[in-house]
Each structure stands twice: as C-alpha cells, then as structure tokens.
C-alpha cells in the first residue's frame, strides 16, 4: 500500500512571501526519508505541501507538481480532503482531541469519514494501537481521555490515530522534539517498524536521529534570512553523513553552522 512520491519544481508561498523554491525530489516507497536543515529553511512547509496541509493557512499557496504514482495531487479535480486521507501526518506537539477518549481518538479519523460497525472499529483500534506500540500501556483504559497520557504516549496515540485511517504515506513533523530520550527511542523503533508498510517522511533537527532512522536524507538550506529555502542535496543517508557532495551540507552536519 505504500506509494512513491514524485516532486517537480515546487514553490510554496505565504501570501507574497516565497518560503521554498524549486524543489525536485523522489520520495521512495517503503523507506524513511529524513529532511534536515536549519530552522526556517522550509522543510516543514515542504512537508505540509505533500498532503495539501499548506493551503489550510490563509493566503498560502503552492506551485509545481507533486505526483503520487501517476496521480497529480494538485490536479484541479482532486479533493484535498481525500489527499490528506491518503497521506497522513503527525505533528510536532502531540495533539490528541481533548474531548475524546483514547479509543475515540484512534477511531476519530474513521468515524468522521465513514460508518463502521463496532466490531470493525474495535479491531482497527486495537491493530492501530498495537502498531504504535501503545496497546499494552492503554488497553485497560481505552475509555479514559487521551490527554491523561504522558507526552510520549500521547505522541504514539497520535501516530496510532494517523495509521488507523490506513494512509499510503505518513508525514512526521519533528515528532520527537517535545519528547524525552526514552519516548524518542520508542518512536524511532516504531518508525523502523512502520516503514515496512508505509512511506515515511520525517522532519528532524536531530541529526543522529536522521542518521539512525532514515534511508535517504534531504538537506534544505536558505541563502539568507527572508530568501526562499531550497533543497541543497539529497542522497542515501550514509552518503550524506559520510561524504556529502555539497560544502553547505558538510558544514551543517559537522556542526560548523546552523
């Protein structure tokens, strides 16, 4: 079910401000692709263009082509809601729905779209929570509110919620930046497990994390403050971290700037 994504000449704007420019890349299916780069270089913005979440912000728009297996995601007759159903997203800060229980949080994406029988829902919720390595911790309190969990558990709950709708691709925007090292490890293990089923794109500020979990790494940078961010280099993670071709990439990963 995982699919490959082809990006050609993508620019993204906030009003008249161009945030990213001329991005070309191929995101492999059943692999983890990491985006690294200094703050403000547009990696999160680019991530959000991939499932049409960018245009949710008033005044924001995208130019260029993004295709998922021959289907143009920005085609004029494409429903953005269905794009987001196919390409799920996990955010930087865990954001379970506060009015819903753990069970309802996981079932939210399903319930809000279609009708499912109770037993179908039960199975999907259990599978998703198991998929997010959270089942054993919450199986006795599925009816308690999701906001009562710890930060790391909440983030795994959000991952369970995202995979419950069975997307093709999972986008993760710095999913571990608000978490302690143990929860981070749990999520990284989870990412390695999930990549057998999903195409995963992860934005991270933690280069060890990129090196640990990703198969390919893309380095973004911007020429100066106020300039649009650009893709500098993308390659196998081992290659990026050992022998990058660009000077800027090397400077960034060796900590000489950024």
């Amino acid at each position: 079910m995982a699919k490959q994504i082809e990006v050609t000449d993508v620019d993204a704007y906030y009003g008249s401000h161009k945030a990213i420019e001329g991005i070309n890349m191929t995101i492999d299916a059943r692999a983890v692709t990491a985006f690294i780069g200094p703050s403000g270089c547009g990696k999160s913005t680019f991530l959000r263009t991939l499932n049409r979440m960018h245009e949710v912000i008033p005044g924001a728009r995208v130019e260029g082509k993004i295709r998922m297996e021959e289907q143009d995601l920005y085609g004029s007759d494409v429903d953005p809601v269905s794009v987001r159903r196919t390409i799920g997203m996990v955010f930087q800060r865990p954001n379970p729905f506060p009015t819903m229980s753990i069970y309802d949080n996981v079932a939210a994406g399903l319930r809000l779209n279609h009708r499912y029988s109770k037993s179908q829902l039960d199975t999907i919720v259990e599978d998703s929570l198991k998929g997010a390595n959270l089942w054993n911790e919450v199986k006795d309190r599925l009816n308690k509110p999701g906001s009562g969990l710890s930060g790391g558990q909440q983030q795994r709950l959000c991952i369970a919620r995202a995979i419950a709708v069975q997307p093709q691709v999972l986008l993760m925007d710095e999913p571990c930046s608000a978490l302690d090292p143990i929860s981070t490890l749990a999520i990284e293990d989870l990412i390695s497990k999930l990549k057998q089923e999903f195409t995963i794109v992860i934005v991270t500020h933690n280069m060890q994390q990129a090196a640990r979990v990703s198969d390919k790494t893309a380095f973004f940078n911007l020429a100066a403050q106020g300039q649009p961010g650009k893709l500098i280099e993308m390659d196998e993670t081992t290659k990026i971290f050992t022998s990058p071709t660009q000077k800027a990439t090397e400077d960034y990963i060796t900590g000489r700037f950024g």
Binding site: N95, A108, L112, V165
Partner: peptide
C-alpha cells in the same frame, strides 16, 4: 493544532467544526 490534526486525518472542514471544534 486540533483543527489541523483533524484535517490531517482527512476529515472535511464542516465535520471538523461539528465533531472537534464545537465539542472542545
């Protein structure tokens, strides 16, 4: 965050308002 979380699950805007925003 909650609206975006709901959109990212492929939930339409009006369902997001009815099922997530108003209950909150």
């Amino acid at each position: 965050d909650l609206r975006e979380a709901s959109y990212a699950l492929g939930v339409s805007k009006w369902r997001t308002i009815v099922k997530v925003v108003l209950p909150t």
